[in-house]
Design a protein around this nucleic acid. Structure first.
Lengths: 256, 256
DNA sequence: ACCTGAACACCGTTCAAGT
DNA sequence: ACCTGAACACCGTTCAAGT
C-alpha cells in the first residue's frame, strides 16, 4: 500500500477504463460480433497479453461493458425517481426514462439479451459478474421502491398471490421483451425504417405498461389521468436534453 | 421432374431432417455453443461439404432448428385455440400452453433470444428465414384470432390508441421477457434450483399475464373468474400428458 | 515486475480433386 | 452429378522469451 503501488493501481484503473471505452466504440462501429480481442488490443498501445491481464476472457470484457451501460441506465432512472410526483406518475416517468435509454443507447438493448441468453456470466470473473449484478439490482430496486411507496400511500393494493417484486419483474420483462421483438424486426413488427421502429417501440411499451399497471389497479388509472400529457411535459423538462437529441419533441406519435 | 429427380428430392429432404435431428440433439447435449459444423457433419455419414450443400451457413442451421421448435409451439397453441371456451378463458389456456412449451422445450427459450438478438436472420438463406417467419406469424395469429373474437363478443373493448395487435405483442413480450430474465438467473430472480426456477417462471408469467388482460378490461376480470382452477383443469385434461411428464400435477405452486 | 507476440487450438467456410 | 477432406482465414487464449 505504498504511494507507488497506489499510483500503479490508478494507472491500471485508467487503462481498464480505456479498454472499455475502446470496446464500446468497436461495438458501436462494427456490432457485437465485430468486437475481437485482437482488435481491442490493437486499438491500444499494449499487446494482447496485457489485455488478458485485465480481463479473464472475452466474456469478462462484455460484462464490464454492460456494467457501464447499466450505470448510465441507473442514472436515467435516478432522475425519474427523484421527481416530486405521486407513485404511479413517478413510475410512469421511470418507464419513459427506460424508453429513452433504449433509444439513446440502442446497442445496449442488442447486447443485453445476448448476455442474458448465453452463459456469459458464468465465464466472466466473479468480481465483474458481481459488479454487474450490483448495478442491475440498483435498477430493480429503484423501481421496487416506487412500488413500495405506492403500497404505502394506498394507491396500489395487491390482491391474493401478487407481490411488489412480481409487478416490477412484469414491467421489466415487458421492456426487455418489447425491446427484443422490436429489434429483431420480425413477424408483425417489421418497421419500414428506423424512425418507424422507434415510434412502434415507444407506443407499444407505453400502452402495455399502462395496461399492466391498470391491471394491478394502481391509482390513478390511465382513464382518470392524462399520462400522455405527463410524458410530454417530462420530455420538455426532466428529459429535454435527450428528447431534443433524439428528435422526440413534436413528433406525431407523441402529440397523438 | 422425372421420377428419379422426385426420389432424389425426397432423399435430400430426408437427409435435411436428419441434419436437424442431430443438430437439436447436439444443442440439447452440449448447449448452443457446443453446436459446430464439424460435429454436425461428423455425426452423419457425410462430410462437411455435403452439409454446406444443404445449409448456406451455420445461421441457416439455427434458423431451420428454430423453425421446427416453433412448429411444436404452434401445435401447442392449436390445442388451446380449439377449446370450446369464451375468449378470455381460451387465451388463458393459450398462455398455459406457452408456459408448458417453455418448460417442455427449455432449449428453445435459450436459443430464441440469441436468434433475435444477433442478426442470424440476415445471414441465413432467404427461404429458411421466410419459412421461420411464416410459423412465427402463425403463432402470432392464433393469439390475435382470440383477441379478435373477444372484440367480436364484446368481452374485450379497446380504448383510444389500443389495438388487438398491441395487446398480442404485449403478451408475447411478457413471455419472452420473463423467459429471458428467469433463464439468466440474474438479480432478483436467482432460483435455488431448477424446480424453483420453473415455479417462479410459471407464477410470474401467470400473474402478470392476468394483470395485463385485466388492464385491457377483458371480461371476465380475474377477480370474477377462477382462472387458476381453469388452469388446473386444463392440466388434467387438454395438457395432461405434458403436465404428467413435467410433474406439474399436485405441485404446491399449482394447488396454492 | 511487466509486457510482448509468436504459437496453438478451434471453428466456419471454400474448392480442387476424386468417384 | 455428387461427395470428400485438405486448406484457409479468423479468433480466443497461453506462455516462453524479452526488457
Amino acid at each position: 500500500m505504498t504511494p507507488i503501488s497506489d499510483r500503479k493501481r490508478q494507472e491500471i484503473a485508467e487503462r481498464e477504463r480505456n479498454y472499455l471505452d475502446l470496446a464500446l466504440r468497436i461495438v458501436l462501429d462494427q456490432g457485437y460480433l465485430g468486437l475481437t480481442m485482437d482488435k481491442l488490443a490493437d486499438a491500444t498501445e499494449y499487446s494482447k497479453g496485457t489485455l488478458y491481464q485485465h480481463f479473464k476472457n472475452k466474456e469478462d470484457v462484455i460484462c464490464g461493458l454492460l456494467r457501464r451501460l447499466q450505470i448510465l441506465r441507473l442514472e436515467f432512472f435516478g432522475r425519474a425517481s427523484e421527481l416530486d410526483l405521486p407513485p404511479r406518475q413517478r413510475i410512469t416517468a421511470l418507464g419513459l426514462a427506460a424508453e429513452l435509454f433504449v433509444l439513446a443507447y440502442p446497442e445496449n438493448t442488442r447486447i443485453e439479451p445476448i448476455l442474458k441468453a448465453t452463459s456469459i456470466r458464468e465465464k466472466a470473473s466473479k468480481e465483474r459478474s458481481d459488479a454487474l449484478e450490483e448495478v442491475e439490482m440498483g435498477c430493480f430496486n429503484s423501481v421496487l421502491k416506487i412500488a413500495q411507496s405506492g403500497l404505502a400511500s394506498g394507491d396500489l393494493k395487491l390482491q391474493d398471490g401478487d407481490s411488489a417484486e412480481a409487478l416490477v419483474i412484469g414491467l421489466w420483462a415487458m421492456h426487455v421483451g418489447v425491446g427484443l421483438i422490436a429489434n429483431a424486426g420480425c413477424g408483425p413488427c417489421l418497421a419500414e425504417n428506423e424512425a418507424a421502429n422507434q415510434a412502434f417501440l415507444q407506443e407499444t411499451l407505453y400502452a402495455n405498461g399502462a395496461r399492466l399497471l391498470d391491471g394491478y389497479g394502481w391509482l390513478p388509472l390511465s382513464k382518470d389521468f392524462d399520462y400522455r400529457a405527463l410524458r410530454q411535459e417530462l420530455l420538455r423538462t426532466t428529459f429535454s436534453k435527450e428528447a431534443q437529441s433524439l428528435g422526440l419533441l413534436n413528433s406525431p406519435t407523441q402529440t397523438r
